[in-house]
């Protein structure tokens, strides 16, 4: 589903954020991307979101070579990748409903279908009654769940999340991760960047470790995924 071959990324400043990274994530897998701050986790996810382009190497997502995607085609690619951010990136002047509906409106989904799907997505993240609320009226954990509802509403086959629990206390973090696990169980391929080792250990999924832009001990806890693939 996600295949990196010898991918390097050097930023304009001369920093080599990723150095010859290769790995393969199967369809329906859930993988944690770990590593200390500055290891290159965000960079790797940005390459997947086509926010950045690799300096070298090849990335294939869902059978599509990202190198062959021109600027004008990026929007259509992004609609098939659900994205979740540490800072939620919600629109604070719009109610929850509008935030969650945004991907559907962008994709041109028929309007009569939108309320139903927004309700279903909010129900999935346990916020069924918050449609009319503004994001500021919600707790940080609830805001993150709104972000997750928005990421899954267009039913993307892939979900990527950059430190989604970075601002949450351990209980809420575990809840959010459980939510990802459930989404993974209905068939979505999930890639979550996190440096919360305790949490990752509790969830027992495959871990991809980065250090200074290189993959180290890629199958550190590989047993968990071996049974599922």
């Amino acid at each position: 589903m996600i295949q990196f071959s010898e991918v390097s990324k050097r930023y304009a400043g001369g920093n080599e954020a990723l150095a010859s990274v290769s790995f393969n994530i199967e369809h329906g897998e859930m993988v944690f991307l770990t590593g200390p701050s500055g290891a290159g986790k965000s960079t790797l996810l940005k390459l997947l979101a086509l926010i950045e382009r690799p300096s070298r190497g090849q990335i294939i997502v869902n059978g599509q070579n990202l190198g062959g995607i021109r600027r004008g085609q990026i929007p259509h690619y992004r609609r098939k990748v659900g994205m979740i951010f540490q800072d939620h990136k919600l629109l604070h002047d719009r109610p929850v409903f509008d935030n969650v509906a945004l991907p559907l409106i962008i994709a041109g989904v028929a309007y009569q279908d939108i309320p139903k799907r927004v309700s279903a997505a909010l129900e999935l993240v346990g916020l069924a009654h918050k449609e009319r609320a503004l994001p500021v009226m919600l707790s940080t954990g609830e805001q993150q769940r709104v972000g997750i509802a928005r990421a899954v509403i267009s039913r993307p086959p892939i979900l990527i999340a950059d430190e989604p629990t970075g601002n949450l206390d351990p209980d809420l973090s575990f809840e959010v991760m459980q939510l990802f696990r459930r989404l993974n169980q209905v068939g979505i391929t999930v890639l979550v960047a996190s440096h919360d080792h305790n949490l990752i250990r509790r969830l027992g999924q495959r871990v991809l470790s980065l250090r200074a832009g290189r993959v180290v001990a890629p199958e550190l806890q590989g047993d968990a995924h071996a049974g599922r693939a």
């Binding site: 899954v152 039913r155 209905v186 068939g187």
Partner: peptide
């Protein structure tokens, strides 16, 4: 049920939306 079980089901559901509906959404 926003998540799909596999790509096939997803594709089928997407294509259920006709071109006319899409255009209506665009006009809206």
């Amino acid at each position: 049920m926003p998540a799909a079980r596999d790509d096939g089901a997803r594709g089928a559901r997407l294509s259920r939306q006709t071109l006319g509906q899409r255009f209506a959404a665009y006009r809206l």
